[in-house]
Computed example of a mutant assay.
Amino acid sequence: MRYILMSHVDESALAGIAPEKFQATMERFVTFTQALAESGVLRGAEQLQPADTATTVRNRQGEVLLTDGPYAELTESFGGFWIVEATDLDTALKHAADCPAADFGSVEVRPLTELG
């Protein structure tokens, strides 16, 4: 079964750390992603631009409404994701626990619905 591991991070906390610690954290994300790929479970991964680059789209009464920024004010924002193949939820949760985002934010794990 495929699972999505969604990274939720506090961008302001990351912005406040020393440049060398920030670089080391980013390298941990690369190492984590490479380990998933090398183990053969990685099916896709992407890092998102900061939340303030988002545009939210709503359709209301025949009108398209656009709002700059994310939908809601949150302490943590969606920062990226990994799609992994795992035999069960426990295995997917183990991958999530290894993700650096779990150290300073959270990693949400959800099974994906197979389409078609």
Rank of each mutant, 00 (worst) to 15 (best):
G80M: 03
L66M: 08
G40K: 06
L74P: 01
S39D: 14
C99A: 15
D88K: 09
I17D: 01
F22Q: 10
A97T: 10
S77R: 09
R43G: 06
F22K: 13
Q47E: 14
S12F: 07
M6W: 02
R110E: 10
G79P: 05
K94Y: 13
L66F: 04
L74K: 14
L42H: 07
L42I: 06
F32N: 10
P100F: 15
T33Y: 07
Q61W: 04
S106M: 11
F32Y: 15
F29S: 05
S12A: 14
L74V: 11
V109T: 13
Q49H: 04
G16M: 07
T53S: 12
A24V: 04
A101Y: 10
G44Q: 04
G40F: 09
T31Y: 13
M26D: 02
P70F: 05
A37F: 12
L14V: 00
T31L: 14
V30G: 10
L42D: 09
L112R: 05
P70T: 05
E114N: 02
R58D: 10
S39V: 05
F81S: 04
L65K: 08
G69N: 03
R110Q: 09
Q23P: 00
K94I: 08
A15M: 05
R43W: 06
V30F: 11
F32S: 11
D52Q: 08
D10A: 07
A101M: 10
T67D: 04
F104E: 00
L36H: 06
R60F: 11
D10K: 06
T25K: 11
D103K: 15
L74Q: 13
K94R: 15
I4N: 01
P50C: 12
K21H: 03
T33F: 11
S39T: 14
G116W: 04
V41S: 06
R58N: 02
L93Q: 11
P100E: 09
S77F: 12
G79Y: 08
A97G: 13
D10P: 04
L93N: 02
E114Q: 04
T53L: 08
L14I: 00
A51K: 07
L89T: 15
F32C: 08
G79H: 00
L115P: 00
V64T: 14
P111W: 02
A96G: 02
V30Y: 12
T56L: 04
N59I: 15
T113Q: 11
D103H: 07
V57C: 03
P100Q: 03
F104H: 14
Q23W: 01
V84I: 14
V30H: 13
L74D: 00
F29I: 01
G40R: 07
Q61G: 12
D98M: 15
A96C: 10
L115N: 02
A18K: 08
T91Y: 00
E108H: 02
L74G: 06
T91H: 12
Q49G: 00
Q23E: 15
E76D: 12
A24T: 04
R2M: 13
V84E: 03
G62T: 10
E46Y: 08
A102M: 14
L42Y: 12
A96E: 01
A92C: 13
Y71A: 15
A35G: 13
S7D: 13
G69W: 06
M26K: 12
F104C: 01
L115E: 04
V84Y: 06
T31Q: 15
L65I: 15
V107C: 07
A97F: 07
